[in-house]
Design a protein around this nucleic acid. Sequence first.
DNA 1: CTTATCTCTGGAAACGTTTTCAGAAAAACG
DNA 2: CGTTTTTCTGAAAACGTTTCCAGAGATAAG
Lengths: 377, 377
Amino acid sequence: MPERAVTIRDVAREAGVSVATVSRVLNDSGPVREATRERVLGVATSLRYVPNQAARSLITRETLTIGVLLPDLYGEFFSEVIRGIDLGVQRERYHLLLSGSHDDWEEISAALRAMHRRVDGLVIMSPDLDAAAVQSTVPSDLPVVLLNCAASGRDIPAINIDNRGGARAMVEHLLSLGRRRIAFVCGPARNHDAAERLAGYREALAAAGLASQARELPGDFNELGGYRALRELLEAGEGPGVDAVFAANDSMAVGVLSALREAGVRVPEEVGVAGFDDIPIARYLSPPLTSVHVPIAELGLRAVSALLRAVRGGPRDASGEARQELLATQLVIRRSCGSLTTCGPDGADGADGANELVGGSSGARGGKGAPLTGESA
Amino acid sequence: MPERAVTIRDVAREAGVSVATVSRVLNDSGPVREATRERVLGVATSLRYVPNQAARSLITRETLTIGVLLPDLYGEFFSEVIRGIDLGVQRERYHLLLSGSHDDWEEISAALRAMHRRVDGLVIMSPDLDAAAVQSTVPSDLPVVLLNCAASGRDIPAINIDNRGGARAMVEHLLSLGRRRIAFVCGPARNHDAAERLAGYREALAAAGLASQARELPGDFNELGGYRALRELLEAGEGPGVDAVFAANDSMAVGVLSALREAGVRVPEEVGVAGFDDIPIARYLSPPLTSVHVPIAELGLRAVSALLRAVRGGPRDASGEARQELLATQLVIRRSCGSLTTCGPDGADGADGANELVGGSSGARGGKGAPLTGESA
DNA sequence: CTTATCTCTGGAAACGTTTTCAGAAAAACG
DNA sequence: CGTTTTTCTGAAAACGTTTCCAGAGATAAG
């Protein structure tokens, strides 16, 4: 099975020119006469020549690939992030090397070693880790962008969701509906997003002078976690003892709804329920779930932009400190908190509207006060 | 910023040996004295030497990377597939080059060209395409595995879900509950999985002598599609006119449930609802959704296994024809079809059980009659 | 002691590009 | 027409590996 691959040399020979000229034509670097150019191009396509990437990146020292490190590849959230990243990467004609399922630090650094020299830059998403740790492990000449990490080290660019602002907005909304005893179902203890959402909850409660009313239930970001949290709450006393439950993400809100239904507690009449993320099914739940919309795909898209900026700007950007971006969220009000009386999940025409209210954005601000334009994915 | 990367030559010099020896140590190919070996290894780690992948794959002509082509990166389903693939790839110490969002044939072939020589093999998932088309575009020396494609060309290995058997099993179950007028919400017209599920529905109905009762509603695999389909059904006559609705996937079933609830139709008393895929939230819906469980992650895992087998076995495996695998599905019976009277989505301990019945598998069979072992991901 | 077989090692040729440098041809200019 | 500039082109040197080949000791066999 020889079938030797066609190389640049074959093209050169066939076209009666040198390899240098072929290279020039293909990358249009340097001048080449029009006639020659066309001849080379013709030969190249007729031979189905495709440049050998390994050889090319051996000498140019760039791979046209970016790496993505994810904690684990579960669920809608990651799926959307990847989609955003893929979109961005494709637009810039880059490639995407994916590596998932990294829970602990050992695995991350192993994956990192494995990606060495295979990628021009790295997007690391690991809500459990902080920036300092990353900084000490990643080779200093490899551009990195952090997603949803505790950004302690200010000189790594990072993109985050405005978790705190979103949670605050949601709690304020619940308060405005007259709900006073609002429980919060937490995410995983060491998760950065979860911590920020919790902080937002506390802030809003404190601002309303209701800090003493805080009720924080442990959770894990999964449906089962929300389900269990509510079960325990319900079993603790007679009746739920709260008039609203705010889950740190939608998956848990699904579990919360399920537990309440099972216990015969009416939503939203007795207890309002709210989530965070606004995953696609949120509006189809029963009742449709009030949530905080997060532009997940855009998170990925922006990560790619930021990374490629760093890649192209050379190892250390002259502009100095690294950018920190904060993505605005949006309150999406549906029936699960009792603010609307209409029913049905959606207008029959598929557009948003009819039945849901999109609330004020939760304060977007760039690292340097630059406003974020709303170019959504 | 020179900071020249450390090469094999540096290691060789430092250890006082030739580059050939270093190479031998690192790949343990060929004999080398124990003392030398240790010295080289020591120097290598102390210099933090990492081999340059480009140079290596330039000469070995292998990239230790497999490519994955996906139609689009939406939702739980793809997320799970990717997870399975990632698991398999990681286990075999390969890398994963991902490329998504390819709807039409043009884009696929463009992505294919771009991946040329960057990958040792390809997993292509495109339910809209058939194998013949793939075969004509992919370079013949690049191993390929097809996922969920119409496998017309028998000499490309393909892995499919037993969509037809799963659908048949579900219809049989509905019939066994006494439901006779069963509507089916179809998937996208050109999607292979969708077509097979429809075929299963028809087969089961025909086998029961109820072919004339078939009621097929157009759909698109999204929540909104299911919602609309039911709306139209409900508006057509007074009352639903059916006693069960079988949606071609769970997302649509969510929409179906939502539309029924909105119209005040009780589930499962008046109309039973069933889905396909058994996505994680299925058991938390109201009522918990009866569905056909699909081992999605395993689909990805198997794809990797099959692909690497092909990669390592050389361009054309001597064993002759390519394997076609068919993955068994499982009926998961919950409350939405009215066969159980208990309530609540789950045992409080998180295990399956208490409240759901896992039905007989829908006939697994390998391409050559080999039974599929249930080594789940 | 010679010869044949091991075990270990280093030199050098690949692999398929890009890029530098210098030379050749063409064009512009006097 | 000679000179200078400009445009185009090719030879050859990288890039960092792996691998082939042959040589050097050492050990075993005769």
